[in-house]
Design a protein around this nucleic acid. Structure first.
Lengths: 114, 114
DNA sequence: CCTTTATATAACTATTCGCTTATATAATAA
DNA sequence: TTATTATATAAGCGAATAGTTATATAAAGG
């Protein structure tokens, strides 16, 4: 066990959060780029409340942070989370999701949040 | 992304499986020692069917293997699983669980399965 | 053979989960 | 101010989850 070992109950809670395709993809995207709710709505082709509820869970667990910028709220990975090293290691095993933001840009939907 | 990147949907399924304290602890234990259902029943102080259902999920996902030895069925980590590298990295962040098997030995319950 | 031990499976139940719709809040723009 | 855009929250619903009890299978020992 390493010095930064995480209590197994709390680790399970984090893994449960990441055990959802939408949230896991969100985190993988946020690993490279900050994003707002409206972008996720476009990317996942789902409703705004559904996205808000997903990001809220990630925020409640301390995995992401929010920053208001005008009328938008920008979400980013919380690098200070005790879970951040675990999450980072996890993400290494997942395919890059940058193409999703690229698709948004091509549709002119990315700039809407900047 | 690495060459061994795992489809994000399937990774989410695996993380959901591991997002349960009992199953996550099982996997952490199996990382160091094979074990049978009856040992897990003692360790987790829960019913035999509950344990059987947990190991079945892990087996169905290919994370563990079973080997019958007499009347016991011994479970072990499946190192050939495509998810094994991911799981291994994960486990590095969790506290060692050897004390659980040690407790069994002290109670004389470990040998019952060997 | 019958009994015991280990494990699996089926049916049921309570809880949790992720979505929906409707509504509220907050910032911006006209 | 009023309208628009972005986001959050609440309530409700159907599906999935993890446990329970009861029963089935399978090996070992008498």
């Amino acid at each position: 066990m390493s010095k930064t070992a995480i209590d197994i109950q709390r680790a399970a809670n984090v893994l449960k959060l990441l055990g959802d395709k939408t949230r896991l993809t969100m985190i993988k995207i946020l690993d490279n780029h900050d994003a707002c709710v409206c972008e996720f709505v476009e990317i996942f082709k789902t409703s705004q409340p559904a996205i808000s509820q997903h990001v809220r869970k990630l925020k409640d667990a301390g995995l992401v942070r929010e920053t208001r910028r005008g009328q938008w709220i920008i979400y980013s990975l919380n690098k200070d989370s005790e879970y951040f090293p675990l999450v980072k290691d996890l993400l290494l095993h997942l395919p890059n999701q940058d193409f999703r933001l690229k698709e948004l840009e091509e549709q002119g939907l990315r700039i809407s949040c900047e």
